[in-house]
């Protein structure tokens, strides 16, 4: 990638800038509890929850910043926020 003077760029360049490293807590699904209501996908402010072919969802950890809105709003408490550890 090269830069243009003035910081001019086309749309969609945030894909290059992976922000998952900002996360402290990581959301994890318990698929046994999930009822596929789709609320988490709708409410994710970073479009980091993607549908799977089987109707469940998965997190895109390259961009999820760990805000926890999905876990907070899930009506079945099917998302747990787990501390990121190395």
């Amino acid at each position: 990638m090269t830069i243009l003077p003035g910081g001019v760029c086309e749309a969609g360049t945030t894909r290059v800038n992976k922000t998952g490293g900002w996360r402290t807590f990581k959301p994890v699904y318990d698929y046994d509890k999930c009822i596929k209501c789709k609320l988490c996908e709708l409410l994710c402010p970073d479009s980091s929850i993607n549908p799977r072919d089987d109707g469940f969802f998965e997190f895109d950890y390259d961009f999820c910043k760990g805000c926890g809105i999905c876990a907070n709003e899930c009506p079945k408490s099917a998302i747990e926020m787990v501390l990121e550890e190395k």
Binding site: L4, G6, G7, V8, C9, A11
Partner: peptide, 30 residues
Amino acid sequence: HVLDPKNPLSFGAFADPNYYTEFRYLQEQA
């Protein structure tokens, strides 16, 4: 480069520490 709804562009976009120095460098060259 111009702002035009038909061809959307961002001006002065976010530059993290990987890119900021180069913008200042280009300004000084100009």
